Computed example of a mutant assay.
Amino acid sequence: MSTQQQKNIIVIAAHPDEPEIYAGGTSALFAEMGHRVKFVSLTNGDCGHYSISGQELVDRRTQEAYEAARRLGVLDYSILNISDGRLTNSFEVREEVIRQIRNWKADVVITFHPEGAGHVDNRNAGRIVRDAADFIAKVPNSVPDAPYLEQSPLFLLMPDYGKRHAYSPDLVVDIGSVIEKKLLGCDAHASQFYEFAPWQRNLLDQVPQTWDARKDYILQYWSSFIEVSSEMLPTLDRLYEEGKSEKTKYAEPFEIADYGRRPSDTELKQLFPMLSQ
């Protein structure tokens, strides 16, 4: 694949494991097709456990993230050294986000909604990207150590768990062919899927040990991040083909951000070539 055909995708979330659960399937599809994918977590996830803390937890979650990236075919995973729950929309963080997007030469940026319910870090991640967006292309005096882009990327929003009741699925990607890879990406984050979340839900005694059982476990308890839901169906039929909604079981939805350009369906299919397969 030539560099002109190759797409550069960056997923910017608030915590390690969120790029995987919200966009892991789409990322695996891009990687399989030869495109370049990068994950960024704006915090180090140091609140994400009930018995491990501090640098020990940061180190563990970092290694889990790197393993998830390997399983998904993601080329790079950056984790900022900001404590979980303390992410703010400061100019320092905005400039680092500009730097990350520019240095990756991103064609597509995927992040969280800047408003609505859900985790405060997730909202702030969305706000940081939104407020950085105007400086990414053709503003050479902003963050001059990172060469500015000639064209602004397409910005897409992941529907955070607190936003699922009120979002527009402008783009829905069928991830059925890579569902195993998405689940393996989640599985790499054992501290979250098999320890912290089960502890919060009083399910620690139900965590299975074999991979086949763990696949079913993730599919059961994280189904809303994996399975097609009714609001996605019209978009599947529009972007793929009539009747696609009846054939699709696993999918990831995205909303086109209101602060970037709004592409036509033709441009969406150019940026997301899996839609034409």
Rank of each mutant, 00 (worst) to 15 (best):
Q4W: 12
N8E: 11
E18R: 09
P19G: 05
G25V: 06
T26R: 04
L29F: 11
G34R: 08
K38M: 12
G45L: 02
G54D: 06
G54F: 04
L57Q: 06
E67C: 10
A68C: 10
R71H: 07
R71M: 09
L72E: 09
V74K: 05
Y77L: 07
I79S: 03
I79W: 07
D84P: 01
N89W: 07
S90R: 05
E95S: 14
R99H: 13
R99A: 13
K105M: 10
V108H: 01
I110A: 04
I110F: 06
H113T: 05
P114T: 07
G118I: 06
V120K: 09
N122E: 11
A137F: 08
K138W: 15
S152K: 14
L154N: 00
F155P: 00
L157G: 03
G162D: 04
R164I: 13
D170N: 13
L171T: 01
I175Q: 00
I179P: 00
L183E: 00
L183T: 02
C186E: 08
F193M: 08
F196P: 00
P198H: 08
Q200Y: 04
A213C: 05
S223P: 02
S223H: 15
V228P: 00
L233P: 00
L233Y: 05
Y259I: 11
R261Y: 14
S264N: 08
